[in-house]
Nucleic acid binder design. Structure first.
Lengths: 253, 253
DNA sequence: CAGTTTGGTTTACGCCGTTAACGGTAAACG
DNA sequence: CGTTTACCGTTAACGGCGTAAACCAAACTG
C-alpha cells in the first residue's frame, strides 16, 4: 500500500502539486496565446503574484522551470509518435522524431523560443546545467547512438578532434546519455552536435518566421537537411524508405 | 551648392536627424548592456516617452527600426573586413564575412537576437517585408552569386525544385539581389537558403549559449560547417587556403 | 501545548507601453 | 504680411509588470 515514490509528508506532496499546477497553468497560458507573467500564472491559480516567490526565486526561474517541463512534455510527444516503429528501427524513429519536432516548433513558436532560443549567459552555470539534462537532447542523442549501433557510421577518432572539442565530448556538458557511450566512441557526440546544429538552424529559422513562408510550407528546407544528415549517419541505403516516412509525417496534421 | 540628397525642407531634415538619433541612442543602450525601452531611449535623448510616438507607432516598430539599422551597420563591418581581399576573390571575402558575422554574433548576443531571432508572425506581412530588404541577407547572397560566377558550382534546375520552392526563388521574398540573377539560375538561391540555414543554426546556437561553452570557444562547430558548405559551392580545391583564412579570422580579436 | 516553519496575504515601489489632452512654434498659405 | 495649420513636444494618467517588505494564519514539530 502507498508504495508511491513521493516522499510521503503531506506538506511535501502539497508543494509538489503546487509546482505541477504552476507549470500546467503556465503552459495553458502559453497555449492560449497569452503572455507568460508571474501575475497571470498566480491569477489563474487563484493566488497573488508574490505568493509565487515561495516557489521560484524570480521570473527567469519560472521561465526555466516551465521551459524544462515543456521540453519534457514535447519530447514525450515525439517519442510516442516515433514508437509506431519498433525499437529495432531507430532510423525510422529518429526520422519521425525529428519531423515531429519540426511540426511542434511550427505549431508552438512561443514554446519553442522559450526552450530553444532563450539566451543563456556564459557565466550562468546554473541555467547552463539545465541544458545538460534537457530531455529532448538526451532523447535525440540516444536515438543517434542506437542508429550507430546498426550502421556503424564513421565518426572522428578522439585524436582527430580539436583538443577542446575532445574535452567536451569526454566530459559532456551537452545533453547526452553519455554514460553508456564508451570513451573511445565519443566522437559520435561530435556528429551529434553537428547534426543538431543543422537541424536546429532549419527549425529555428522556420519557427521564428525568418524565412519565406512558402518555403516553410513546402517543408523542403527541413527535408533536404534531414536527408543530408541521414546520409552522414550511414543511412543512405535507406534513403527511399526514410524520406517516405518524413513525407508522411510532414503531410500529417 | 547644396547638391545634398536630403529632400531639402528644414522640417524633413530635422525629422530625419531625430530618427538617426533614436537609432544611435538605442544602439548605445544595447551596447551598454541596458534594456531597450521607449522610456530609456527617450530619456537619453532628453525627451519624454510619449514623444517617441511621433516617430514610431509602437514599441515593436522601434525594435524593428533599430534591428534594421543594426543589421546594416553590422553588415558594413563584415563587408569592410572582407575587403582585405580583392573583389576578384569572392570566396575569400565570403569566408571572412561569415567568420566576422559569427564573431559579431558572439560579441553582441542581444543585438543578434534582436535582428535574427525576433519572432515574425505568419500574418505580419509588414514586418516580413523588412526581411526582404535585410542588408546582411542581400550582402551574403550577392557574395554567393559572385562565387558562382567563378566556380559555377552545380545547383538544381528549376524543374528539379519542389513547385512551391520554385515559386519562392522566382519571386523571392527572401533577401536577394535577385534582380541580376536570371530566372534559369535561381536554383542558386536554393543553395543560398540551405547554406544560410546551416550557418544560422551554428551561429544562433553559439550566440544564444545553447551549446557547450568549450565547443563555442574552439570555433570548430562553425569551422566544420563552413568547410562543408564551401565544398558545396565549388571551393573544395581552395580548402586549404580558405580554412587558413577562417582560422585567422577566428583567432583575431 | 508552545514554538517554529511554511505559504499565503496586503501594500508599496519603480519600472514599462500607451493614450489623451494640451500648447508653442515653425512652416504653409491666401 | 498676417493667419491658419500641422508638427512636435509636454504633462497627466491608466493598467500591467517584477519584486520587496511586513504581516498573519494554519500546519507541522518538539
Amino acid at each position: 500500500m502507498g508504495l508511491v515514490r513521493t516522499p510521503a509528508t503531506r506538506r511535501e506532496r502539497q508543494r509538489e502539486a503546487t509546482y505541477d499546477e504552476i507549470v500546467s497553468v503556465a503552459a495553458q497560458l502559453l497555449a492560449d496565446g497569452e503572455d507568460l507573467s508571474l501575475r497571470a500564472v498566480a491569477g489563474r491559480m487563484g493566488m497573488t503574484a508574490p505568493a509565487l516567490y515561495r516557489y521560484v526565486a524570480n521570473y527567469q526561474q519560472l521561465i526555466d522551470l516551465v521551459a524544462f517541463e515543456l521540453d519534457k512534455a514535447a519530447t514525450a510527444e515525439w517519442a510516442a509518435a516515433a514508437e509506431r516503429f519498433p525499437a529495432e528501427d531507430p532510423a525510422a524513429r529518429l526520422s519521425v522524431a525529428c519531423a515531429r519536432f519540426r511540426q511542434w516548433a511550427l505549431a508552438r513558436p512561443r514554446e519553442f523560443a522559450l526552450i530553444f532560443a532563450n539566451p543563456i549567459a556564459e557565466e550562468d552555470t546554473e541555467r547552463r546545467e539545465l541544458l545538460t539534462v534537457s530531455t529532448s537532447g538526451r532523447y535525440l542523442t540516444d536515438l543517434l547512438w542506437q542508429v550507430w549501433g546498426q550502421t556503424k557510421f564513421p565518426y572522428p577518432r578522439l585524436e582527430e578532434l580539436h583538443p577542446t572539442v575532445r574535452e567536451a565530448v569526454l566530459d559532456p556538458l551537452i545533453p547526452a546519455e553519455s554514460g553508456h557511450i564508451p570513451a573511445e566512441e565519443r566522437g559520435i557526440l561530435w556528429i551529434y552536435m553537428r547534426a543538431w546544429s543543422a537541424l536546429y538552424g532549419v527549425v529555428t529559422l522556420e519557427s521564428t518566421g525568418h524565412c519565406d513562408p512558402r518555403v516553410i510550407a513546402s517543408g523542403q528546407l527541413f527535408r533536404s537537411t534531414m536527408l543530408d544528415w541521414l546520409g552522414v549517419i550511414g543511412l543512405d541505403d535507406q534513403r527511399e524508405r526514410l524520406s517516405a516516412i518524413l513525407d508522411e509525417e510532414l503531410a500529417a496534421d
